[in-house]
Computed example of a mutant assay.
Amino acid sequence: MATSRGALQPITSRSVVEQATEELRRAILAGQLAPGGEYSLRELAGMLDISFIPIREALRSLESEGLVIMRPGRSAVVAPLDLDDLRGIYRLRRALEPDIARRSCVLLRDEDLDRLEFQATDFGAREQGMADIYDDHHAFHLALLAPAATAWDIRVLTTLWRAGERYIRIGFGRLDPDPAEHQRRGQAHADLVAAFRTRDPGTVGDAVEQHLARNEKIAFSALS
């Protein structure tokens, strides 16, 4: 599948494999490398102005995240968007996140919750689209769970968050023109912080379940 050279930004320094992985991931999550699109490794190496070997290593990393599918030979396909995959991502998130949250709510410090409450207000700013806030959004949810999360919890959740990011960006991207959606987005995250302030595991678990359910519904509606 042909694409413009401007879809990817040239690599400069640091670890070439690491930078190639980050840039390819960014382009996939932003939709600049379209779902279902097939690209030769030589084509991708040319876009990034690097050699063939680091591209292959980068694609292997992205395959482990569920973002690409390696083909026999020297090509890769950007993983298609699939409603069954979306259901699977959220089924696993619901199995992990409420449980970790219930344990984390009694461990978080008040100053951590104060900081997160302040951060939640930024999610409601009209100039902040999903593409702008997504890194902060990951950090916000990780901070809520981190006191009770193991290294493996974080690895698994990070993989699920990245796999679900394309779906969420599409779903919320269609809502962004509505000013009320931005206010709701900020309030939804402020409500999560308020639930954690209760220090009640049942309240927190229910709040996280409801947050996940609404996000899944928005992403599912946008795609179906």
Rank of each mutant, 00 (worst) to 15 (best):
A2Q: 15
S4E: 14
P10R: 00
R14T: 04
T21F: 05
T21H: 01
I28D: 03
G31L: 00
G36Q: 06
A45G: 08
A58G: 05
L59R: 02
R60C: 10
S61G: 14
E65D: 14
L67S: 00
I69K: 14
M70Y: 13
R71E: 11
R71Y: 12
P72K: 13
G73K: 01
S75N: 01
A79T: 15
L83P: 00
D85T: 13
L86N: 03
L86C: 10
R94P: 08
P98T: 10
A101V: 01
S104P: 06
C105R: 03
V106S: 10
D110E: 11
R115F: 07
L116D: 03
E117Q: 06
D122H: 15
D122K: 10
D122Q: 13
A125D: 06
Q128M: 15
Y134A: 11
H138N: 08
H138M: 09
H141C: 11
H141W: 07
L142T: 13
A143W: 00
P147N: 04
A149D: 05
A151T: 13
T158W: 13
L160T: 08
R162P: 11
R166Q: 02
R166H: 02
Y167M: 04
R169D: 09
D178P: 04
P179W: 00
H182M: 02
Q183H: 08
Q183R: 12
Q187W: 00
A188G: 12
A190P: 10
D191Y: 01
L192P: 03
T203E: 12
T203Y: 03
I218N: 02
A222K: 01
